[in-house]
Design a protein around this nucleic acid. Structure first.
Lengths: 304, 304
DNA sequence: TAAATAGTGTCTATTAGACAGTATGTT
DNA sequence: AACATACTGTCTAATAGACACTATTTA
């Protein structure tokens, strides 16, 4: 059937078209031990059986919107689905659409368009064994290979050697949480993700870095009440930059609506000394004016 | 068939799933007579027959990526498809993904997920009668009703009365280009768009306003060579704000890589007098450092 | 006691924006 | 001639960042 005829038919009945599947994948980010982690699932079935992948699933046609599908997938895979306090916990999660990925060969089974979402979550408990989410685990992003493997949608960044093959069981299945106790682990061989999920994750991380500049969403990584130094730790972890404590403190308090004082302080000082910090919670601002700009890492000196 | 069973089957064969259609829609923006215009097509068939809609169509399963589908739709509907110089013209168009819209009831025929793209184009000729794009026309965005009518994907903005009905022929089919000759036309009743395209267009306009702050894409609205005052007119049109000519001029020249001098000037001065302006073309910067921030329209005075 | 940290004060380089002024075009 | 405009100079308020300092808490 030629394309023009397909189009003609589809104008009357879209079902006449060659089918395309729609999935929703979630890049769920959190901070554990001061380092960014992403939620991944161990694929039990081909393709990419045994590889880690972003949690996701098919959109339930006619039943749910994309946003609803993303929220459902997130709840299912974190194990928050139906547990006590799930409502309260989920209400504090930030979920936003990241982008869609639709190269024809990104899934060997058929043409699959994946709508990716980005989630900012506070530190959540590990998914429980025996639950729906038993195959899910939080991984430090530093343990993952972020070089794109599959064909990707945006801007030609050519996939360097379609690495790994389509159905290979690659790397360990254990969540590689090196240095959870603070001992800096040796650099293991980076985990390769299924499909084009490395690219999606990389896009999500870059979006997160940009987003906390002009929105108060860094607070979504923290409990309801937090201190300014804790907030600074979020920025330092996401940007992978050391920030000046004094200037950061003053800057945060100077942005209207970013944080609101609770009037109390922490019970103890820092682990290595120092006074107790005052606690705050997120204010009502949805955009930061002025923004907290990232330190200019590369600024080629302009010719004067 | 219950959802869990569907999911189980789909893990083996996604074709077992209830079908979802995928379309690609394009918000193509340009500037005509100093005002933003968007490309719309007159729907010849139900649903929303006779209404104006964003150009778009079904993704050709297995044949093209989302980016490729968007470029194809844009070329077809602008009439640039296969014309002389089409390659050169299309290469200067900026196309980026805007977002995906997938509420189950946004198309009455079936569940359709639409991946929207945003295009920045220089002033193009009107689509020719008799061509593939005969049903397409550029409309000033001020003539359109941007209030969302259909169900939308993002954040609850509740649709105010599912306006107009699904198959109503609403408003004129003539492209309403009031005041093309400078006479300020009376405010006609705003044109309502098909589907949830008002929301998509509104999202696209907001993206465009934000995008020209930190990227040099305002130049995509202009010919290859342009003057600083012409560039300022782009910012003024997109932001709907008057800018200070002198400060804007110095600011643009101070951003490395934004514009590059051609060494020549225009042939004539301005229509109402003034010296000839120097001409420039776009530089190689892909991000503006520092950015051209929008004037702070609402800045509630912070308590001192 | 020694060390680390929370929070504040102060100085400086950079920047956005207001305003003025000159040269060069137009009707 | 009258006027509009391109472009540059200069001043000021706001801001980012460096640095210093005090007070408070931990080991």
């Amino acid at each position: 059937m030629d394309s023009t005829e397909q189009e003609w038919l589809a104008a009357y009945d879209p079902r006449a078209y060659t089918p395309v599947a729609v999935t929703v994948d979630v890049v769920a980010l959190t901070l554990r031990h001061g380092r960014p982690h992403v939620l991944l699932v161990d694929r039990a079935l081909p393709p990419y059986r045994g590889r880690w992948a972003l949690p996701g699933g098919f959109l339930r046609a006619g039943e749910e919107s994309l946003d609803e599908a993303a929220a459902r997938e997130f709840a299912e895979e974190t194990g928050l689905h139906g547990t006590a306090g799930a409502e309260a916990a989920l209400s504090r999660i930030h979920l936003e659409q990241l982008g869609s990925y639709g190269a024809p060969d990104r899934d060997p089974r058929m043409h699959v368009v994946s709508v990716a979402y980005l989630a900012f979550a506070p530190d959540l408990p590990d998914p429980q064994a025996g639950s729906d989410a038993a195959h899910a685990a939080w991984h430090p992003v530093t343990a993952l290979d972020l070089r794109p493997t599959g064909r990707t949608e945006t801007a030609g960044a050519p996939a360097d050697t379609h690495g790994g093959g389509v159905d290979g069981r690659t790397g360990s299945t254990e969540p590689t949480d090196a240095a959870a106790d603070g001992t800096s682990g040796t650099a293991e061989t980076p985990i390769e993700l299924a499909f084009d999920h490395a690219r999606i994750l990389a896009d999500g991380l870059e979006r997160a870095r940009a987003k906390i500049e002009y929105s108060p969403l860094a607070t979504a990584f923290l409990p309801h009440d937090f201190t300014i130094p804790e907030l600074r730790a979020v920025y330092e972890a996401v940007w992978d930059e050391k920030l000046h404590p004094g200037n950061f403190h003053r800057k945060v308090l100077s942005v209207p609506g970013f944080v609101e004082s609770t009037g109390t302080t922490t019970d103890r000082g820092g682990a290595r000394g120092g006074p107790r910090a005052r606690t705050y919670h997120a204010g009502d601002a949805r955009l930061l004016h002025p923004a907290l700009l990232r330190p200019t890492r590369s600024d080629p000196p302009p010719t004067p």
